[in-house]
Write a protein that binds this DNA or RNA. Structure first.
Lengths: 234, 234
DNA sequence: CGGTACGTTGAGTCATATCAACCATAGTGG
DNA sequence: CCACTATGGTTGATATGACTCAACGTACCG
């Protein structure tokens, strides 16, 4: 399912939020000796909850879905990783099995950095260590907000909010359609509700001319109103 | 409301999960020059959402409540900090205003470590940097689990689970009563429900001989069954 | 052409929120 | 010392958002 591929390792210096963006060419050269790069096709599972990870992943292109499987096999999507982001580091650093699963949502080119290489880098390069700490803190802040939202907002509010958050993270095409394609079930698994509820609410939003629907394509018609319904500040 | 007090700074090496537990006496001596120590009384607010923090806190004794205020002023408790833990670091490291508020739940002795002192320590001491990274990853893992729970479990399940988690974190007295005292409202603000629901479910648990209630004191009578109801693994 | 995954709609049910009234306790100030 | 107020706790009645179950439509794929 995966296929080795050559990508210039210094790519990982160029993405806006990469934790590697301050590395020197020398650092990159060292890193690239032991890291590898693969093309992963949509649908591939990278690891499952409970697996021990032997390294961390860096997203060069594509989108990865990170999720937990709860009671009765229902998934809860924790986050999506886009180019420039790393994942798997939580498990590697706390030396625990993965507490989430990772699946390829769009064909992705990933760098894989083995544990000992990452740890070595963290020990010798305070900048990378601090960058990773910041990434982890940012994620923590988002997780805390999400806990509050899911605990206090209605499903309708959460759906509107998620539409706005997805727009902010992945952006819109020229014609205002969301750049990431999700099934109704995946949307439900983000906001923690039933698939049917998502379907009903999406049609409501369409009725109210907030969005337009065409299969999985969601076109944004009234962003301010969606923002208002979702109680999104920021 | 707060009062300066002298505590031996090397205390912060002795607590089990302290990020400072590997510091040398020299490191501690340096640290203690610029950190200060105060006794904070129950009810004191340490900071509010949106505040800029000028440093991080280390809990020597006592309990701190970390929470977010959502729509219509309802609080969502994110976590409690007990001796050995640090808080406020998320805001300091990502250089953003605090995304939570912090309030003293039980009289607490706190060390306050100014931002520049912490950053300096992180830059010069890879062990502390890694410890903090691990702490942050642990918190992240807990936050992810909590998102899944709150999204998928019923209020009844969540209440049972929280009772188990509180027991695991704070322990029980000789007579099996929980060592931390919370109002019904605080319990509701952890699991994200209405105060009345907590009251009703606690009485149900009491009826079923799972717990006994005496004011805010909760006595654990049947831990295995609570664990089962709460779907707590681990 | 049958199979599989996804999407949609309707009907019925139930857990939980909301609203309202009331009690207990403790602290405050005249 | 008593009235006053605030805070927390409890219980009941009522309303409803969201879930579940079930049936069916649609589209793509080998």
């Amino acid at each position: 399912m995966k296929q080795e591929i050559y990508i210039n390792p210094s790519d990982c210096r160029h993405q806006e939020y990469s934790i590697f963006r301050h590395l020197s060419q020398d650092d990159i050269d060292n890193l690239s000796i032991e890291m590898n790069c693969n093309l992963h096709k949509k649908g591939e599972t990278l690891y499952n909850e409970g697996n021990k990870l032997s390294g961390v992943y860096y997203v060069n292109t594509g989108i990865i879905k990170i999720f937990k499987t709860g009671i009765e096999g229902r998934d809860q999507i924790i986050r999506f990783c886009k180019p420039g982001e790393v994942f798997g580091y939580r498990s590697v650093l706390s030396e625990e099995p993965a507490c989430t699963s990772a699946k390829v949502l769009e064909d992705s080119i990933l760098f894989f950095i083995p544990t000992h290489v990452l740890l070595n880098l963290l020990n010798t390069n305070a900048v990378v260590a601090k960058e990773l700490l910041i990434v982890s803190c940012k994620e923590l802040g988002e997780a805390n907000s999400f806990i509050t939202d899911i605990a206090q907002k209605s499903v309708r509010e959460r759906l509107a909010e998620v539409l706005i958050l997805l727009k902010n993270k992945f952006g819109l095409e020229e014609d205002n359609t969301l750049k990431i394609n999700l099934t109704r079930e995946e949307l439900a698994n983000i906001i923690g509700t039933a698939t049917e509820s998502v379907i009903r609410l999406l049609s409501e939003f369409k009725q109210d001319n907030l969005i337009d629907l065409n299969g999985r394509k969601i076109k944004y018609l009234n962003i301010p109103e969606l923002t208002r319904i979702g109680n999104v500040y920021s």
